[in-house]
């Protein structure tokens, strides 16, 4: 990999991404267009997050990559290896050790600190896309703070199902100005963006958008007075391995007994918890 420049991208590309990230931080929740380079992985596989990671990463960073709560999935491993091989930096599975965390669809269970940067991969940055297909028009709607469409989507779900049925990518209002897709994290993770201690960056490679939520920023999940926002509840369910209850759980079926059981979705947290318990 020595034929590639440090962090794969050329300096010109990094500059453009870096400027876009700064604008994103200055205008929380606003989607800043950027050029989105060709990457050695396909668009839609985390290229937005990856480009932010590569533009920001330095020799002293320690990177953690998560894919749906797992550090070991193919996507997470490959992104981690690409960054590691083109920079020589350390990688980790422990949230507290990481200075940068790139993630697909989860925010870790371990609380983030102000010296960490959370980078989320975004498939669809536009919260109004289901209402309006034209990018030209959705940009206008954001300009006019015309968000009735976003509420209408939730309203229709309530009409149909008696509750909001948006499981992941539940839209939020950032700094009382922009409605934003938080990327397909479960609703469970939405409150972690509100007043987060860490900077959160969002990269949509295919849609060529970068946006950000600075630390200590007000982020409200959209809701109605009579239908307040609720996170997924796991009442009476516990993680079979750790006994934890206040975490996001995955449902499994034991194929021999047919029994349903649950495990922490954040597998590195599960591992960390078990290691601590066993005194490793």
């Amino acid at each position: 990999m020595s034929n590639y420049p440090f962090a794969f991208l050329d300096e010109q590309s990094k500059k453009e991404i870096r400027r876009s990230v700064l604008k994103g931080v200055a205008i929380p929740g606003y989607q800043v267009p950027f050029a989105s380079r060709e990457m050695p992985i396909g668009r839609g596989w985390g290229t937005g997050g990856l480009q932010i990671t590569l533009a920001l990463v330095g020799e002293d960073d320690c990177l953690k990559v998560i894919d749906q709560g797992s550090d070991e999935s193919v996507n997470a491993e490959n992104i981690k290896k690409l960054v590691q091989k083109t920079t020589g930096i350390n990688t980790t599975i422990y949230t507290s050790e990481a200075t940068m965390i790139q993630s697909r669809h989860r925010i870790p269970e371990v609380p983030l600190r102000s010296d960490q940067i959370m980078i989320l991969q975004v498939p669809e940055p536009e919260p109004l896309r289901h209402v309006e297909r034209s990018e030209f028009k959705t940009k206008q709607m954001h300009a006019e703070k015309e968000y009735s469409g976003a509420y209408l989507l939730l309203f229709e779900q309530i009409m149909r199902y008696g509750q909001t049925a948006q499981g992941a990518d539940y839209p939020v209002l950032v700094h009382n100005r922009y409605v934003m897709n938080p990327s397909p994290i479960p609703r469970f993770d939405n409150p972690k963006i509100h007043q987060s201690e860490a900077l959160m960056l969002f990269g949509a490679g295919r849609e060529k958008k970068i946006y950000a939520v600075p630390p200590y920023t007000t982020v409200k999940s959209l809701a109605f007075e009579d239908y307040p926002f609720e996170v997924e509840k796991f009442e009476g369910k516990i993680c079979r391995a750790t006994g934890l209850m206040d975490v996001f759980l995955d449902e499994f079926t034991d194929e021999e007994t047919g029994e349903t059981y649950y495990l922490c979705n954040d597998t590195s947290y599960m591992q960390e918890y078990l290691e601590q318990k066993r005194g490793i």
Partner: peptide, 11 residues
Amino acid sequence: AYRKLLEALSF
């Protein structure tokens, strides 16, 4: 320098 700038504008 960029990371310092990013931190400066984030905080």
